[in-house]
Amino acid sequence: MGGIDVVNGVAGAVIGMLFAVLFQQPLQDTWFKVRRRWLTAVRSLRLREEHSPSWTTFSLGPLRTSALIVEGDGETPIPAEGVHIQVLDGETRLPAEITHWWGEIEAESARLRAEGRTPVWNGLRYAVESFDISRTPVDEQPEVRLRLRPTDYYTFLAAQQLDRRLPDGTTLRSRYLDPDQPLEAPAFLQCSLGVNIAVVTADDLLVVSQRSDRVRMAPGAWNSSVNEGMSRHIDSSGRNAPGLHAVARRGMREELSLEPHEYSLELLAFVLDVEKRHWSAHFYARLDELTREGLQARLSRGVADRWEHQTIEYVPFRAATVAKYLLHTDRIHRWAPLAPALFHLALVHVYGRATVERAEAQVIRRR
């Protein structure tokens, strides 16, 4: 028996040596590779967690936009008395090295006028100097403070050339805008302040407009029911600062021929298009009595700004239906940047966040 034990021991030692030679190094290599990949994955996750931006733009499944919801969640309207607007002295000025861009636009307008064509009108506008948010101490209602400077449409068009090369090879975007600080920008790059309104008829249909091919900004894009820019000439009364609700009511009248007594109007949010630096006050309007048929009849009798829209569609105002409409293949890449967020916020205002997000998630899964 002793001899057998010796033989077994020798055999075991030989097998162990063969195992070590044949398999130990590959096993060690595999272990080190697994361990290295795991550590790399952990480090990457930590980096993503550390560098994930707190400000992200609105998206709905595959629909990505440049609309940043700065204030407002849709559920709770922002009271008119919570919005404070101050107009500062001194017009917004372009940097000296791009003032000739303003001159180019003026020259283009003069050429069009000489040819008997429609010139680019240099309307009086406002630029956003700063946007500040706070809360009231007792009930934590939002307090929004907008500081504006006078500007004009040519300044706006010149500053919209954000990616045009400057003499040193930089651009306005690379020189003045920081993606990690989306609310920080000089006033001359923020010469667009207006309202976007989601209008719902008395028979629960959302009004969706398509911008005319004749407009200069986003021609042919599908957009909000009403889109109106703030005008320094029209919206300021004497020395008083303009009011956003008044601008919204003017837009309802000029684009849909609707008077204030025919609808309710609520301010839902302030939204910034971070790509083009357009500021918007997002509103929801509900028509009291006018149905689709009634609104169509009203529009057939004349609209002040009919030229701004080339098509109007009506969509059942339900979360799943609107989500499908937003994500439809012939529409998903043709939205004006601020419109999808507006429609989502309007749905949340009427049906609640949980209901709307559940319906949207189902639509996304079924695509």
Rank of each mutant, 00 (worst) to 15 (best):
S225E: 01
I312D: 05
T92A: 05
E266T: 02
G220D: 10
L268P: 00
S109M: 09
L183W: 06
I98S: 04
R117M: 14
T30Q: 14
R353M: 02
P167H: 14
A336N: 07
M230W: 05
P150C: 11
R149I: 04
D288F: 15
W38C: 15
R306K: 13
V83R: 00
G352D: 03
S225L: 07
P167A: 15
E108L: 03
S54C: 15
A361K: 08
A202T: 14
N122W: 06
E262R: 06
Y351L: 03
E104V: 11
E184M: 15
G90R: 13
R37G: 13
F317Y: 05
S134V: 14
R147Y: 14
V7K: 09
R35F: 12
E129K: 12
H349S: 01
G72N: 02
A320Y: 08
R37D: 07
L39Y: 07
E106Q: 15
G9Y: 13
R173G: 08
A269N: 03
T201C: 04
W307V: 12
W307M: 09
R135Q: 10
A359K: 00
G243T: 00
D305C: 09
I105S: 06
G16P: 02
F156E: 10
L338N: 04
S212T: 01
R253E: 07
T151N: 03
G294T: 13
Q161S: 15
P182T: 15
I105L: 09
R331T: 08
F156T: 12
F270G: 02
N240A: 10
H233K: 13
G169T: 03
V87E: 00
R239A: 10
R111A: 15
R93S: 11
